[in-house]
Amino acid sequence: MAKDVPAVAPGGNVRRRLATGVFAFEGDDSDADLRQQFGVATLLQTVRELSGLKFIRRDIGTAPELFYYVRKWTQQRYRDYQIGHFGFHGKPGELWLSGSTKVTLEELADVLDGRAGGRIIYFSSCEIMGSDDAALRRFQQRSGATAVIGFLERVGGSLELPAFELLLLQALNDDVRMDAVEERLRSQHPYLCELLGLKIIN
């Protein structure tokens, strides 16, 4: 397991890494084969073994459950779980929790209400970043998040998504600046970035 070594900037100043922990919200996929074992928990366990990135994970089936745990995530006691990992089906501007239950980015922003300062929102969802840039920036500003990360394309059911998520979470755990994370991903893994339609608002 990787040691938790702080980043050191020129001049000897210690700089806080973007992320040392993940708070994961995982939807109930009504179309999923329940015999399959791979999910967000498996991904996060793998990342923890590789980098020491700690995590909390909660199953989410309803909007009130999501809002309850989102408020928990933004409490001071969970300040070291900087990445909010939202693992749901998606459409532009919407998360589909289970069945026909959906939550819009506007509704999620209402709940966050500026309390996501110092945190990163990562949508592991199809097409959610397909909203126009102005709407995504309004969401970022209203949430208070340092960055919002997601995809323009359909990503469900592909092996490329978990492979990319490993790379993304590792980069967020290694680096201290979001622009460095994006440059690293686009320069080292351009095929995956293009295939999934990576979009970062920061």
Rank of each mutant, 00 (worst) to 15 (best):
R71W: 01
Q37S: 13
E194S: 15
L95H: 05
D110A: 08
A24E: 00
F139A: 00
F23P: 01
R115D: 06
Q170Y: 10
K72L: 15
T20A: 12
Q141E: 15
F38W: 10
F67N: 11
L112S: 06
L136D: 04
L34V: 13
L66K: 00
D132H: 04
L192F: 12
F25A: 12
P190Q: 04
L168P: 03
L166Q: 14
F38E: 02
E194M: 13
L166P: 01
F23L: 05
L161S: 05
Q36Y: 15
G117I: 09
Q140L: 15
A135D: 10
F151W: 07
I120K: 05
Q36R: 14
T62F: 08
D132W: 01
D80C: 09
Q188V: 02
Q141F: 06
F123N: 01
G99W: 08
P64N: 04
Y68Q: 13
E26H: 09
T20P: 01
S187H: 13
D31H: 14
D80S: 14
M1C: 11
C126Q: 00
A24T: 01
L196M: 06
H89E: 06
W73G: 02
G93R: 00
G90I: 08
D33H: 05
S30I: 13
R58V: 15
L152Y: 09
F25E: 04
P64W: 07
G130P: 11
E160K: 09
E49A: 14
G39N: 14
F151Q: 03
F25N: 00
N202C: 11
H85G: 01
Y81R: 03
I149T: 00
